[in-house]
């Protein structure tokens, strides 16, 4: 059975965020759409709003307990839990991030420890796979101490030792950025990349499925490129434990559409699209609003404005995901 605790906090007293709730919603939708959590009731989506006081911490512990109780009834199945957080964060150590709760920083140390919560989930003894995704800053502050889960989280129950995957949006000591994916909505650069990765971009060997190892390598090799597209320098990091590399996160759906890339033009000019072999795919006059649709293989492509000489690199990570570019 699959379970998910998904947290998104925009509404901090100071330094409010814009895209964390949208990221959490998008991640929950992704899990639902991909049927990675087969029972929608098993997704606990905790998101802040101007009119509520979520998330202040106890809801997370409560959700974990509810999930644990349910998982016990599926003891003979392979149980997987996703723990996703989007909000402010503070780097305590290389493997521990203080995840800031709703009233941070007004309420002292209103943070939870990612490492303690990971340990708590492992020690429940009911999960076979634990996947953590943290989209938050990890600027260093050794003085902040994230709170542990309520209850007996330190003592291991049972014999199950789950496979573990932990993905961080940024390396220790560095910032994590929100970017304008479209003109109306800011989103965490990492979450946007993560969802596209799991939809198929991370299937680098075209195996039709994405393992934790695939995702790790894709984050390492390609997330800096993705962030740079939004003029941000950001490196993600991912680590596994206890055979976590072998976790099959999801199967990749084959894209049925006739095209997998849409280029929208915002200029009046003459443009050439070069394929990965540096051969011309198409040269044409374009006007603002024109769209080109292509079924592109995985690879590097280039758009060249033949009048101004401007170039734009297009990277298609997978034939099975839709790509969009503006030029």
């Amino acid at each position: 059975m699959e379970y998910a605790i998904i947290i998104g906090i925009d509404h901090y007293d100071k330094r409010a965020l814009s895209g964390a709730v949208a990221d959490a919603e998008a991640f929950a939708k992704f899990l639902t759409d991909m049927q990675l959590v087969s029972n929608p009731d098993n997704i606990k989506l905790l998101k802040s709003d101007a009119s509520n006081q979520i998330v202040i911490g106890y809801e997370i512990d409560s959700a974990i307990e509810a999930i644990t109780e349910n998982a016990k009834t599926h003891r003979n199945e392979t149980n997987r839990i996703y723990f996703y957080f989007s909000g402010h964060g503070i780097g305590n150590t290389f493997n521990n991030t203080a995840l800031c709760m709703r009233f941070w920083p007004k309420m002292i140390n209103h943070c939870i420890s990612s490492l303690d919560y990971l340990t708590g989930l492992i020690n429940k003894g009911i999960f076979d796979e634990v996947l953590l995704f943290l989209d938050c800053c990890r600027e260093n502050d050794t003085m902040i101490k994230g709170l542990p889960p309520i209850g007996d989280w330190q003592n291991k129950v049972g014999e199950r030792v789950p496979k573990v995957l932990v993905c961080n949006s940024t390396i220790y000591g560095k910032l994590s950025y929100e970017v304008s994916i479209d003109s109306n909505q800011k989103r965490g650069a990492f979450t946007s990349f993560l969802i596209e990765s799991l939809k198929g971009d991370a299937d680098t060997n075209n195996s039709g499925r994405i393992t934790a190892l695939d995702l790790k390598q894709h984050i390492e090799n390609n997330f800096p490129t993705y962030a740079l597209k939004y003029n941000k320098i950001q490196n993600g990091s991912a680590s596994t434990d206890n055979g976590g590399d072998n976790i099959v996160i999801c199967e990749v759906k084959k894209l049925e559409e006739a095209y997998n890339f849409e280029i929208t033009f915002n200029r009046n000019s003459n443009v050439t699209l070069y394929n990965k072999n540096a051969d011309k795919l198409r040269t044409d006059n374009v006007v603002t609003g024109d769209k080109w649709h292509y079924k592109l293989e995985k690879g590097n492509y280039v758009l060249v404005d033949n009048v101004s000489g401007e170039q734009k690199t297009i990277i298609n990570f997978s034939e099975n995901t839709m790509g969009y570019e503006q030029f």
């Binding site: 560095k174 800096p224 490129t225 320098i233 590097n300 280039v302 990277i315």
Partner: peptide, 16 residues
Amino acid sequence: KGIYRLKVNLIDYYQE
């Protein structure tokens, strides 16, 4: 022949 990308790192600065 082809389209290549060069990734360059120095300290914590990155450019392509």
